[in-house]
């Protein structure tokens, strides 16, 4: 038996290599957002999340130092340079404290901003390593039953929805992910549409589908969640219409939307855990 395995190890390896992804594909719910995870996957994901969270923590001071000065020169220059570097470092730390202060003020204000919701705070620890999807990994910072498909918000507006949940960690699919779909309504004229992620290479834009010619959407119009579909509560800020391109002879308009949330600077988010119970 062992001899047989040794003789055909190349073929067996190739078979296993193809079989594992096939099994993953067959056992999953396809491309839909919000998938359940098995207990071993929850624990494995939790362990990987801990490692990534530790790395993010270690990287913070390093990334803060990027853009530092050069070395070399006379003794006096060295001393002055060291002094400047020290002052810069202190300045950077103070700016960091001020930014944290502002962020914490916003976080303290979150419950008053969304008084009807049970909010579970989470911290962004990483993002997916491909440019094809738009997913952030978050560490859940409080007790609470976070489940797939729950909406995620920040102080700026709607971020996306929970995709998969692990032990203490979760994947959040952003609004601009091509898998994301959110029922939306225009604040100005209550025109209904569906916000879908574009997954563009250079931006976080989304599009609003199913807006007819009669809907009269204009650049600058604010889109909020409509509450239809039961996943997202009503009136969460999604973003602003950036461009409207009427299609000649077509029934629907092409509308591009800029999300209200700056996903590049996302640090703290909140999962709304009581949408179904409200």
């Amino acid at each position: 038996m062992l001899e047989l395995l040794k003789r055909h190890r190349g073929k067996i390896t190739a078979l296993v290599l193809v079989a594992v992804p096939l099994l993953l594909m067959v056992s999953s719910a396809g491309a839909s957002v919000g998938q359940s995870t098995t207990t071993p996957m929850r624990w494995a994901g939790g362990a990987l999340g801990s490692v990534q969270s530790g790395m993010t923590g270690l990287l913070h001071p390093v990334t803060g130092w990027i853009g530092g000065g050069r070395r070399g020169g006379s003794e006096e220059e060295e001393r002055l340079r060291a002094e400047v570097e020290q002052l810069r470092e202190e300045n950077a730390r103070l700016v960091g404290v001020l930014q944290e202060n502002r962020r914490l003020r916003e976080l303290v204000g979150m419950p008053t901003r969304y008084p009807d919701f049970e909010l579970v705070p989470a911290r962004v620890i990483g993002r997916d390593v491909t440019p094809f999807f738009r997913v952030v990994k978050v560490r859940i910072r409080a007790e609470g039953s976070v489940e797939p498909r729950m909406p995620v918000v920040s102080s700026e507006g709607l971020v996306g929805q929970v995709h998969r949940v692990y032990e203490g960690y979760a994947d959040v699919v952003l609004l601009s992910d091509p898998r994301s779909r959110v029922d939306a309504i225009s604040q100005r004229n209550r025109a209904l549409g569906l916000v879908e992620g574009l997954g563009h290479e250079t931006d976080y834009l989304a599009e609003v589908s199913y807006l007819t010619e009669r809907d009269e959407v204009r650049p600058g119009d604010v889109m909020v969640t409509s509450g239809m579909g039961g996943i997202f509560p009503r009136d969460l800020l999604i973003g602003e219409v950036r461009e409207v391109r009427p299609q000649k002879g077509a029934l629907l308009q092409e509308v591009t939307l800029e999300p209200a949330v700056d996903f590049a600077r996302l640090e703290e988010v909140f999962v709304i855990t009581n949408v179904g119970r409200r």
Partner: peptide, 13 residues
């Protein structure tokens, strides 16, 4: 697959 968080199996395949 965990790191990518995409559609299960596609990236691996």
């Amino acid at each position: 697959e965990w790191v990518v968080a995409g559609v299960p199996g596609v990236y691996s395949m």
